Simulated scan of single mutants.
Amino acid sequence: MTKIHDMGGMPCVEALPVENKTVFEKKWHKIVLSLTLAVGALGKWNIDRSRYFRESLPPDDYKRFTYYEKWMAGLVNLMVDSGLVDQSELRDFKVANKPMQGVSVSPEALKSMIAKGDPSLCSSNTSFQPHEIGTLVKTKSPPANNYLENGHTRLPAYSSGYQGEIVLFHGFHRLPDTNAHFLGPKPEPLYTVSFKAKALWGDEAENPDDEIHLDLWHSYLEPQSGE
Rank of each mutant, 00 (worst) to 15 (best):
W28F: 14
L148S: 12
F172Q: 02
L183V: 00
E211I: 13
N179I: 10
V76F: 14
K26Y: 15
D210A: 09
F24P: 02
E188G: 10
M79R: 05
G164M: 04
K27P: 09
M1C: 13
L90E: 06
F169W: 00
A41E: 06
D203Y: 12
P156C: 01
L37H: 07
F128M: 05
M79E: 06
K94A: 14
A73R: 05
A96H: 13
P17A: 00
Q87P: 10
S159R: 12
Q163P: 10
A157M: 15
P119C: 03
T153V: 03
L42N: 03
F128N: 06
T178F: 01
G40V: 00
H181W: 06
L183C: 02
P58F: 07
P223I: 02
D48R: 08
I4H: 12
S123K: 14
V76D: 10
D118P: 08
G202A: 03
E14N: 13
L136H: 12
P130Q: 00
L84D: 01
F53P: 05
A197P: 01
L84H: 02
D48G: 08
T192W: 05
L84Q: 02
Q224D: 08
E89T: 11
D6T: 00
V32F: 04
D86V: 09
A109H: 07
E132W: 11
H181K: 05
A180R: 02
S106L: 00
A96E: 15
A197I: 07
K21Y: 15
S104E: 15
K27V: 14
E25S: 13
G102Q: 05
M79P: 04
M79G: 04
L42Q: 05
M10P: 09
K98W: 14
P223E: 03
E204I: 13
E149T: 11
N145G: 07
